[in-house]
Design a binder for these strands. Structure first.
Lengths: 250, 250
DNA sequence: CGACGCGTTGAGTAGCCTCAACGACAGTGG
DNA sequence: CCACTGTCGTTGAGGCTACTCAACGCGTCG
């Protein structure tokens, strides 16, 4: 377990990329992550339809949220990385709207909605930043609708890998072109609306063409710019001028 | 032109469904819709990538937002109905991220981001409600990812029609099972990731089975409960207990 | 060692796509 | 008033992508 930066909130680090935070704001966020606990790989963290008792801040590890159709088909909705807050989007519903489970061993901070409400009450600026991350997610889902609606197998996979890389860099800008990728091909298939067979074929083809390389749970992006073009991937960056924040830096 | 309710903000009416609004709040929203103008059918309202100079509140008519891929493929992202605010989700980016055009003649209020910032500064509760609607959209996009990723032609169309009906009822709860539907089959196809041919076939099949009926730009839902089951459609309703609103009703 | 999960590969299939032709209809201009 | 034009929806023929089903190799773990 890495303890050398346990005092720094990963959520704060991520939000700090959008706008500088005051000490007070950092402290507010750190409070969310006071208590934390590790979950083994493949743990069910959130179960669809339950009352929203807890939210989770990811301190380490990967998770994914997904839904199961009545007949068993599964759709992976989103990956969650360090710095993300899980179930934030369910706040206005009061209950969870999908399942979440860990893809790796995870270190999560568990807190209640009330802890967030406290932040909402105390810092309009943090509130806005949190909503900002939600709107980033929103844009991400709009992109995925475009991908799932109009792209073929290879384009889908390329886009997904790029957005994964992008998501990783959000909390750790040091991520290069090579990264651990703990999803099985079944997971990846359920994320991009294909079958494991098609995923296997497409990945092989991509590797064949020297676009990427795979090795034991790792992905190596060999030609990022070509991949961006293939999937018409556009990186969404929140406007750094956050003049729209309510009560700016009171 | 209907003038008898021109003094009532449609946005206010929609937000009022989630939580009662004070007079002051209603007045704030009404300010957004002070000026308005009509646009003919098929007008380009928003063009992808431009600076976000204006937002629009829909007072009457239907619009749709969409993206065009480099090779011309199109994906319809969302329909917009009376009471909706267009481009709200682009606020943190400072530029538009998709195109919007009118499907019918539309009556739109045009206002600047600054007008919204004014609301953000004056009413945290309205701010939260506006974000609430955004999170409803968010949930809608998550549902669409599930639909596009894992459902076949008929299920997709059924789901889309139901969510359209649901969206209409959001601003006008009097909508029954029969409603105008100004989308062409090309539009519908681009919304659910199919071709016009598949849409035509699927609609014919649905009509054949007595599930719905079409007649000159109208859709008549004959068996809503069966359709809900077919597409495992779940109606998202924002929790009416909005205790999480910051500075509740100060 | 056997059991299981995971990835790969092959053969056959199904759903949706492409291309094309045609009819209905509305708008336009002569 | 009527051809002319373009959009829209329908239907058919053929093709392609991704799916289903299945077998097999590999590695991990009990």
């Amino acid at each position: 377990m890495v303890d050398d930066n346990s005092s720094v909130s990963l959520v704060a680090r991520k939000l700090g990329q959008y706008a500088p935070l005051t000490e007070n704001e950092t402290e507010l966020l750190a409070r969310l992550e006071k208590g934390h606990r590790t979950f083994p790989r493949n743990s069910e963290i959130v179960s669809n339809g339950n009352p929203l008792d807890n939210l989770y801040a990811v301190r380490a590890g990967w998770l994914m949220s997904y839904t199961i159709l009545p007949d068993g088909r599964r759709q992976v909705l989103q990956l969650h990385f360090p710095g993300d807050i899980i179930s934030l989007c369910d706040l206005p519903f009061g209950h969870t709207t999908h399942d979440v489970k860990t893809l790796t061993e995870c270190d999560l901070s568990v807190f209640t909605p009330d802890s967030l409400y406290a932040i909402f009450g105390q810092s309009p600026r943090l509130t806005a930043l949190l909503f900002g991350t939600l709107m980033m997610d929103h844009a991400g889902f709009m992109d995925r609708v475009r991908v799932l609606g109009r792209m073929n197998a290879r384009e889908r996979i390329v886009h997904f890998l790029l957005s994964t890389l992008h998501g990783l860099r959000m909390s750790n800008s040091a991520i290069s072109h090579k990264f651990d990728f703990p999803l099985t091909q079944f997971d990846l298939a359920d994320a991009v609306g294909l079958t494991n067979v098609s995923v296997s074929n497409a990945l092989s083809a991509l590797q064949e063409q020297g676009i990427l390389q795979r090795s034991s749970g790792q992905i190596h992006i060999l030609n990022e710019s070509l991949m961006r073009e293939m999937a018409s991937f556009t990186e969404r960056r929140i406007k750094t001028d956050l003049s729209w924040l309510p009560k700016t830096a009171r």
